[in-house]
Amino acid sequence: MNETTIDFRLNGTPTEVTVPTNRLLADLLREDLRCHGVRSSCERGVCGACTVLVDDLPVASCSTFAFDVDGASVETVEGLAAADGSLSPQQQAFAECGGFQCGFCTSGMLMLTTGLLRQNPCPKRADIRSWISSNTCRCTGYEMILESVERAAELGDGGAR
């Protein structure tokens, strides 16, 4: 049987799916679970457009097999806003500080930010720079992303949700 059944939490919701063994987490999220906010770009783990959190840690979902999240908690950009649609502090900050342009890296950058703030609610500039250096943004020149992360921390609550 080249299929496997996995049980995990997707943005807090218990989810069980049976997928081919080579199903990638990115494709599972995008194609089977309608999380189109997960973007696929380089698909070899470098650019980070597909970054999601797995048990609070940022991972490239293009380079993670779905079977590897069995039992884990997976979070995507779709889980950031509150149920009533109000934006999370990270989302507000990226909007307010212009931390996005074409938007293709933005979901990944937001998840990196979420992971960072969860570990370190008051990161220093050097920590932010180091974390954001995990992913590629070709549009902004990064400074406005770094400021967005600082602003997200300031807006409170950050990744604590």
């Binding site: 906010g37 995507t76 990270q90 990226f94 212009g98 933005t106």
Partner: peptide
């Protein structure tokens, strides 16, 4: 903020 901010920070932007 730019008008496309809500779509892009929620992942709802369609490419």
């Amino acid at each position: 903020a730019r008008a496309d901010a809500p779509l892009k920070v929620t992942g709802k932007a369609v490419y």
